[in-house]
């Protein structure tokens, strides 16, 4: 008797788990982010072939974080397309994040409609690995089209917003939403190791959390809470590398 009911329950559970397993297969391609962050993501990594939203406060931090993730996508997946309303991106600032400049193509589109069109076209191309688009908001239909294009071609889209975006109109239907805020660095750190508070606001099949991390050379390391200093008067002069060279 009990065995019969147990078998029923097992069959029922299997029926429930089946579609979830399909989800796991869909997000089987991932890139690792950091040891602590991977624990909160499905399949222990950021899923590829879908859309993510990265809100940067300021925008430069969001761009840096997204380029860390995009540069981890293997080169065989394709090129990286960066779409922005102006040409303020300075590629030398992305070199410490591991970005290869030869892989990058920059598209400057002034109107939001053009940015959306360019992002969609780029996501549809099979030879594109990642698309980073600086956009303020995207409505449900547009996001759905982005998502379908990304799934079909295998490209990963990062929609970058900044503080100017309205809080009430986020990017709908993104697989994960991140918020990257610049925080004061520990006193011994240098500008080579930018510090951020990375907030995983939402992730499908994952758990939201937030971490304070520093980018050290080629990985994100957790900051211990004690090392966040308090400002007290005069600025601390950090001795970086001697740079008294004429350009």
């Amino acid at each position: 008797m009990q065995m019969g009911r147990a078998k029923e329950r097992m069959a029922h559970l299997r029926g429930v788990l089946e579609p979830l397993l399909a989800t796991r297969k869909r997000f089987s391609r991932t890139v690792p982010v950091a040891a602590e962050i991977n624990a909160c993501l499905p399949n222990a990594g950021l899923p590829l072939g879908c859309i993510h939203e990265v809100k940067g406060m300021p925008l430069a931090s969001g761009i840096a974080f997204a380029s860390i993730l995009a540069s981890r996508i293997p080169a065989s997946a394709g090129r990286i397309v960066f779409i922005a309303p102006d040409q303020t991106l300075h590629p030398l600032g992305l070199l410490p994040m591991g970005m290869e400049i030869e892989r990058l193509v920059h598209v400057c589109a002034k109107r939001p409609a053009d940015i959306a069109w360019a992002a969609l076209e780029a996501l549809r191309c099979h030879q594109v690995g990642a698309v980073l688009a600086v956009t303020q908001s995207a409505d449900l239909t547009l996001c759905r089209r982005f998502q379908l294009a990304a799934e079909k071609s295998g490209a990963t889209g990062f929609l970058l917003t900044d503080a100017a975006a309205k809080a009430g109109a986020p990017i709908a239907s993104a697989i994960s939403r991140w918020k990257v805020t610049a925080i004061p660095s520990p006193s011994r750190a240098v500008f080579h190791e930018p510090c951020w508070e990375i907030d995983l606001v939402y992730c499908r099949s994952g758990s939201p959390a937030s971490w304070r991390m520093a980018w050290k050379q080629d990985q994100l390391e957790l900051l211990s809470p004690r090392t966040i200093p308090q400002p007290n008067g005069l600025p601390v002069r950090l001795t970086g590398h001697p740079q008294f060279l004429t350009g």
């Binding site: 430069a60 303020t88 991106l89 300075h90 030398l92 600032g93 992305l94 410490p96 500008f191 740079q243």
Partner: peptide
């Protein structure tokens, strides 16, 4: 070692 900004 010559750091540059992300946005210029």
């Amino acid at each position: 070692y010559r750091l540059r900004p992300v946005r210029l």
